[in-house]
């Protein structure tokens, strides 16, 4: 088995055996998005208008909140150090961890998002576009977030710091992700947004694990 699939399996097993943390992120996603109708009022035309932004921002913040889980536990008990000094490709290992993080944070968010779509009275076709934009989008968020998470590893204020580092880098993802859904709601073709989102994903799949590995080496020196 390659180091990628071994790491993926190990991290997923850890998530399954301790499901509480992942659940908290999902609860945050639903709660944060549900606060908006309470804040702006229950008028359904307005809600449908702002739904893309709200669902996407809630998903983005939920992924951001889940980022510490990526490396922190392994860093604290010394496992991460062994991974870095081990004779394996750190980039592939990191990719395995990121994909595991996506499967345990991003994918549940995507599966839960139709529930929110109903709350914001989106119709069935827009729902497909929403799922189609969130699925690659959350992986992209995890990939970019991994860089910030590795750079701030072990710092005292790492929770706030990772937010400050990563949020500006999340802007293009939000533009294209929420843009796809918004274009669809406006009766336009969402494909262009989705293509660009997937193009960014291809770039990040190549570069992010490599940069994250470099950042981990710096952090563990």
């Amino acid at each position: 088995m390659s180091i990628f699939s071994l790491t993926l399996r190990r991290d997923l097993l850890l998530v399954i055996r301790e499901p509480a943390q992942g659940m908290a992120v999902l609860a945050f996603f639903v709660m944060a998005a549900s606060l908006f109708p309470i804040g702006v009022g229950p008028e359904s035309a307005l809600l449908r208008r702002i739904a893309p932004g709200i669902i996407w921002v809630a998903a983005l913040l939920a992924v951001l909140l889940g980022l510490p889980r990526l490396f922190e536990a392994d860093f604290l008990d010394g496992t991460l150090e062994q991974m870095v000094v081990g004779p394996v490709s750190l980039g592939l290992l990191v990719l395995g961890k990121i994909v595991a993080h996506w499967l345990s944070t991003g994918v549940p968010i995507v599966l839960l998002s139709p529930l929110l779509a109903i709350q914001f009275s989106l119709d069935r076709d827009s729902l497909l576009v929403m799922v189609g934009s969130l699925l690659p989008g959350t992986l992209l968020l995890s990939l970019i977030g991994a860089i910030g998470s590795a750079l701030t590893l072990g710092l005292r204020n790492s929770g706030v710091l990772v937010t400050v580092l990563v949020l500006p880098l999340y802007v293009p993802v939000l533009v294209f992700g929420a843009g796809a859904l918004e274009a669809d709601l406006a009766g336009m073709d969402a494909a262009a947004h989705l293509y660009l989102l997937v193009a960014l994903l291809a770039l990040a799949l190549f570069f992010a694990p490599w940069v994250t590995a470099a950042a981990l080496r710096i952090a563990l020196e």
């Binding site: 500006p168 880098l169 293009p172």
Partner: peptide, 14 residues
Amino acid sequence: AVLALVGAVNVPII
């Protein structure tokens, strides 16, 4: 330095 380089790559995309 890693952050600055990642940022520099991202500036045109952003």
